Simulated assay, not measured.
Amino acid sequence: MSEHERSRTVAALPEVVFEQASDVGQIDTWLPRELHVRPGEPPGVTVHDDDTGRDAEALLRARRDQLRLEWGTREDARYGGWLQVEGIGGGASQVTVHLSFFDEGHAPADNEVTVALDESLDRLAEQVRLRADRAG
């Protein structure tokens, strides 16, 4: 099993960050660019991977009371992950994303995962900023 975790500070209240992160209709804007999520029967979603051309049935649960998003493959438990948003004061939030790959044979290289997580967190922060700009 391999595990990966990255964090980033976002200049917005935790509820605002979580609302953007958990919006299934907007989730593609911050996920790794090759992944696309289509809603299904909740909590089910279909994840399309452009790199492989395959779809995977997955679960996606938003725990609003905990500002936590959890996901994972549905049938084979290859991977799972979560995103947690916490307020750190001054109108800012700490966003942490964690991935677990349970099958080492299908796990990407560590450096690829680190880059993908950092880019995803940067895109999420940018989407939150754009959302605030549109609202204000």
Rank of each mutant, 00 (worst) to 15 (best):
L69S: 06
E70R: 09
V113C: 07
E119F: 11
V113K: 05
L35I: 10
S100Y: 00
D51E: 12
E3G: 11
R63P: 00
F18P: 04
D49W: 02
L13G: 14
R129Q: 14
S2M: 11
S100A: 13
D133F: 11
G87Y: 09
R33S: 12
V45T: 08
A62Q: 08
P108S: 05
L35N: 03
H48Q: 09
D118G: 08
S93T: 10
R38H: 12
G105I: 02
D133N: 05
T52H: 07
W71V: 01
G53M: 02
R68D: 04
Q66N: 03
L60S: 07
P32C: 03
T96Q: 08
G105C: 09
V113N: 05
P42H: 12
G91T: 09
L13A: 15
T29E: 14
E70C: 05
G81R: 02
L67F: 02
G72S: 05
W30L: 10
D49H: 09
Q127V: 05
V97C: 06
Q84F: 00
H36L: 01
R68F: 01
H98V: 13
R54A: 08
L59D: 14
L35E: 12
T9M: 11
R131W: 02
R63M: 10
A11V: 11
Q26H: 10
A107L: 05
E126Q: 14
G91N: 10
R78C: 00
E75N: 14
R123S: 11
G136A: 11
L13I: 00
D23L: 04
A56K: 02
A132D: 12
T96V: 13
L69H: 04
V47N: 01
H36P: 01
H4S: 08
G136Y: 04
S100R: 15
H48V: 08
Q94N: 14
Q94C: 12
A21M: 11
G25R: 05
D51P: 00
R78P: 00
P32V: 05
F18M: 07
L69N: 03
G136V: 05
G40W: 02
D122W: 08
R64N: 10
A77R: 14
E104Q: 11
G72K: 08
A135Y: 04
E3H: 10
H98I: 02
A92F: 01
G80W: 04
G80R: 15
V10E: 04
L60H: 04
E34D: 10
G136N: 13
D122T: 13
E34K: 12
R33Y: 03
Y79C: 02
S22H: 05
V37K: 03
G40I: 04
D28S: 14
R74G: 04
A116E: 06
G72Y: 06
G81L: 06
E104T: 11
Q127H: 06
V37P: 06
G53K: 02
E104N: 07
R131T: 13
L99M: 10
A11Q: 15
P14F: 04
H48T: 13
I88G: 07
E57G: 14
I27Q: 14
S120Q: 08
L59W: 10
T73M: 03
R6W: 01
E41D: 15
R131I: 00
G105F: 07
A12N: 07
D76P: 03
V85Y: 00
D51A: 15
R68S: 05
D50A: 15
R129H: 13
D122S: 13
Q127K: 05
G25T: 07
T9Y: 03
L121Q: 05
D23K: 08
G105W: 04
S100M: 03
E75Q: 12
E75R: 12
G40T: 03
H106M: 12
D103A: 09
